[in-house]
């Protein structure tokens, strides 16, 4: 797979990042290196091998349905960059 400007733009858009013009070529190179590494791995024949999704043999760790942990609202909002005492404030998401 080849990293193009278009693909880089799409990745940046999905991650809500703005990438300055002068960083693009370097990023493209890095991305390409990563993909090449994965391409290399994909040369291994894995037919008939179950994908390894979880790396431990543990399973079924279920929590009893009890309400135990909750913060006071003051604590909840304390570290927010912007808040009004009740809500977190973020830039307007919907255009007026």
């Amino acid at each position: 797979m080849k990293i193009t400007d278009e693909l880089l733009h799409k990745m940046a858009h999905l991650a809500k990042l703005e990438i300055p013009e002068n960083e693009r070529e370097a990023l493209k190179k890095d991305f390409q290196k990563m993909l090449n590494f994965v391409d290399k791995l994909q040369e291994v024949d894995t037919r008939g091998v179950e994908p390894l999704i979880h790396i431990t043999q543990e399973k079924n760790r279920l929590r009893k349905d009890e309400a135990i942990l909750k913060l006071e609202r003051e604590q909840v909002l304390k570290n927010a960059p912007d808040q009004d005492g009740q809500y977190f404030r973020v830039p307007k998401v919907v255009k007026k």
């Binding site: 909840v76 912007d82 009004d84 809500y87 977190f88 973020v90 830039p91 307007k92 998401v93 919907v94």
Partner: peptide
Amino acid sequence: HDQDPDNTLIDL
């Protein structure tokens, strides 16, 4: 979206 004219408010 409609309570604060300048911000979106978030309730988690």
